[in-house]
Design a protein around this nucleic acid. Structure first.
Length: 730
RNA sequence: GCGCGGUUAGCUCAGUUGGUAGAGCAACUCAUUUACACUGAGAAGGUCGGGGGUUCAAGUCCCUCACCGCGCACCA
């Protein structure tokens, strides 16, 4: 017996060495497994593409959990003999990364991005990204993740750039990407547009002011944003509202706070006659709903009164004031003029930018969009529910794919969330006014526009300044990582991928858009199953956040208890989909468990390794073996049906409370006794159970099982990682 | 407003197609150098959020209410 078993199991001593050995073996790469005859060339594929972590930060508990889940499925399927690929990568995360670096530069050098210039800034952001990339990748390795590093991808590398430009061009040619002047969510703090999904609503106290534009204006109007009223072009009322019927169609002139305005009264179904005065002041340029009203009634939409810095751009006293100051100024003016009827306190939801916290200012801007409601013909489709050559829209495609089960979301509640989101979906604004990211592959020359994967020939073309929303490139991820648009062998073998297991936060942001992109470009689903998981929270159930300073570094847990303990602690006792409260005590418990396995092994090696070998079990041992086999089948079924938390718990329970507490305890007299048949039978049993149990546990606790496996005398020195799963699946 | 979760032992949570309520931790009693103290044995702890229904049988299915989270939309 190896002397190491005389001391307690020490994960710190062996984990790094073990990971190194796995990596050197090349078995993370399915091609190597085939070459070495471990996987059959015609084996069924199983693939997962790692949701690429942002190159802004370091590994947090959420990553640790997500990586564990995926690694369990990957290791399980590899041991089943499937052609198993887990593909790693990282995401440039355009806005997040640039914002981070800009902040540092501002703090350390007092310079803005415009002082530095585009090229210099992009260089600096890229350097920062490179640095954090290395950190996060080394951290993922410490989780024991069996990723095929030879296929590593980065959203801004050459192949992914080609994929992005190709995707953009094809969608542009199909009329699904267009450039248009529409209301965007403008973040004055970040100086960029953001998509609807990057907005966070915050409840605030506000005042609802009821006023008239002028003394002789017949209809009072209520607003929480008086400063925008200088941009009003109409008042909308409900068509059936008797109070205002006589005014519909009439036009009025007024000088509102030094600004001449022209107001038309229109009737619109959307107006709620019960709210406020039952009349809406329509400001098309600074409100999405008002823009829509203006479209329906053919009202002017170009009366812009607020600029990109959230300052007023009008004639008179308000000019160049911050909107918040202008608000007070307008109220004061209304009071002076006797136009203010009342002011009430209301709670209001304010839209803020997720990344910067800036208050969103709706502004009309010329931007690039993905049209989600525009019909197009999908030439080739293997998606269940959509035929080749069928006419559809991107929205419909996203819905059908999940409805038909082409993408399976086993958790019913999340299916509903998904549909709810799809039904509320508007065109997707994909241009961002920042410099780090994929520059939009469009070139302009006077009135001409050229879209392509490279600059058009000829003189005088300038490329679009804006870059793409980071989710545009992320949505291509399942296939851009496999070599698309080239027709690679990897594409044929591993796409659609088998499983995606994202946090529920990212379902609309990412999952649905991967379905969109894969559907349009390939006529395929991006993955067959989506297993949505919850968030890891602190002990009090709060989100981990910098401001609360409640973060727990997974690496600290690994230092203290070992990776296997962390993995088990995150998995057991948590159904997938619900949030998890992080409990260090649990992790500690599984450190003890790793040691328990260590000592079970020690006992068996010390007491059940005589030279005499039984060829069959006696009756008692046969029954014990049978019940173990039942457990093995049970656990296998649990993993196949995504109940990994139950599988892990059952194995834990069996190892500790069956094998150690009962079988080993009962073995002591047998092994010391004189009944050689009973003794050799029991020796065989203990060795068999240990051998199989280690394999069953390996996906969950890869390090300790490998470390033990390497010391079992009966085995050759192959890795447990590529040992066969003890249960055959039909 | 629309929607999604959750409510089970002191705490954190499991509970698969309905079939005698489970685990870990904590607390309690005992064992004391054992393969393992990163230990073992034992006992205790629950009208499964409330109410109603379906059923031979409900933590599980249906209806309803309450409370706690969360998402989406939004009214000017």
């Amino acid at each position: 017996m190896d002397e190491k078993f005389l001391k307690p199991y020490n994960p710190q001593e062996s984990e790094a060495r073990t990971y190194e050995a796995w990596q050197e073996s090349g078995y993370f790469n399915p091609d190597t497994c085939i070459e070495k005859g471990i996987t059959k060339a015609n084996a069924e594929p199983f693939s997962i593409v790692l949701p690429p972590p942002n190159v802004t930060g370091k590994l947090h508990m959420g990553h640790a959990y997500e990586d564990t889940l995926q690694d369990v499925f990957i290791r399980f399927n590899r041991m089943l003999g499937k052609k198993t690929l887990w593909l790693p990568g990282t995401d440039s995360a355009a806005i997040a990364t640039q914002a981070r670096v800009e902040k540092n530069i501002k703090k350390e050098e007092g310079l803005s991005r415009h002082d530095i210039g585009r090229d210099e800034l992009v260089d600096r952001v890229s350097a920062f990204a490179k640095e954090s990339e290395e950190i996060i990748l080394s951290q993922i390795r410490r989780m024991g993740a069996s990723l095929d590093w030879s296929r590593y991808a980065y959203t801004l590398d050459e192949k992914r750039n080609l994929a992005v430009a190709t995707a953009f061009k094809r969608m542009y040619d199909a009329g699904l990407i267009y450039r248009g002047n529409r209301i965007v969510n403008w973040d004055p703090k970040g100086q960029t547009t953001i998509s609807d999904d990057e907005i966070v609503h915050e409840e605030r106290q506000a005042k609802l002011h009821t006023f008239r534009y002028s003394k002789d204006f017949p209809i009072p109007v209520a607003t929480t944003r008086p400063e925008t009223k200088v941009g009003d072009v109409a008042v909308a009322v409900h068509p059936d509202d008797a109070r205002y019927k006589e005014f519909v169609g009439k036009e009025y002139e007024a000088i509102f706070c030094d600004v001449p305005i022209h107001i038309t009264v229109v009737a619109d179904q959307e107006v709620d006659p019960e709210f406020g005065t039952g009349a809406v002041g329509v400001t098309p340029a600074h409100s999405q709903t008002d823009w829509d009203i203006a479209e329906r009634h053919d009202l002017p939409k170009d009366v812009v009164v607020i600029n990109e810095y959230a300052k007023m751009s009008v004639t008179g006293r308000l000019n160049n004031m911050k909107t918040t100051d202008a608000r007070e100024s307008v109220v004061a003016w209304l009071l002076e003029e006797g136009l203010l009827e009342k002011s009430e306190d209301v709670t209001q939801n304010v839209s803020t930018a997720e990344r910067t916290g800036g208050i969103i200012e709706p502004l009309p801007k010329l931007q690039w969009w993905v049209a989600v409601n525009k019909p197009f013909v999908l030439p080739h489709s293997t998606i269940h529910g959509i035929k080749s050559g069928e006419k559809t829209t991107l929205k419909q495609l996203m819905r059908t794919v999940v409805e038909s089960g082409a993408v399976s979301i086993p958790q019913d509640g999340f299916r509903k969330t998904y549909f709810h989101w799809i039904d509320n979906l508007h065109d997707w604004c994909i241009s961002r006014q920042i410099w780090f990211g994929h520059r939009i592959p469009a070139w302009y020359r006077s009135d001409e526009v050229s879209v392509g994967t490279s600059a058009p020939s000829g003189e005088g073309w300038t490329q679009e300044d804006d870059v793409l929303d980071t989710w545009f490139s992320s949505s291509l991820w399942t296939f851009s990582t496999l070599g698309w648009p080239e027709e690679t062998q990897d594409m044929k073998t591993y796409h659609p991928t088998s499983l995606m297991s994202p946090a529920y936060e990212i379902l609309p942001l990412w999952v649905s858009r991967m379905i969109l992109m894969s559907g349009f470009h390939l006529g395929e689903v991006p993955f067959k199953t989506v297993m949505i998981h919850g968030l890891v929270r602190d002990k009090q159930g709060r989100k981990f956040s910098k401001s609360l300073n409640n973060g727990i570094d997974p690496l600290d847990m690994i230092e203290k208890y070992g990776t296997d303990a962390l993995r088990m602690g995150l998995l057991v006792g948590t159904s997938i989909g619900n949030d998890i409260r992080f409990d260090e005590n649990k992790i500690k418990g599984y450190k003890h468990f790793a040691n328990k396995l260590w000592n079970i092994t020690r006992f068996i090696l010390e007491n059940a390794s005589s030279d005499l070998k039984a060829v069959s079990y006696n009756e008692v041992d046969n029954a014990l073996k049978k019940s173990f086999d039942e457990l093995a089948e049970d656990v296998t079924k649990d993993i196949e049906e995504y109940r990994v938390y139950m599988a892990a718990e059952k194995l834990y329970h069996y190892a500790w409370h069956e094998l150690a507490d009962k079988i080993i305890e009962e073995s002591k007299p047998i092994l010391q006794g004189n009944d050689m048949i009973a003794k050799t039978s029991r020796e065989l049993l203990l060795n068999e159970i240990l051998n199989n149990l280690l394999r069953l546990l390996h996906p969950f606790m890869p390090f300790v099982t490998e470390e033990i496996w390497q010391s079992l005398p009966s085995k050759d020195k192959e890795f447990i990682m590529i040992a066969s799963w003890p249960v055959t699946i039909k």
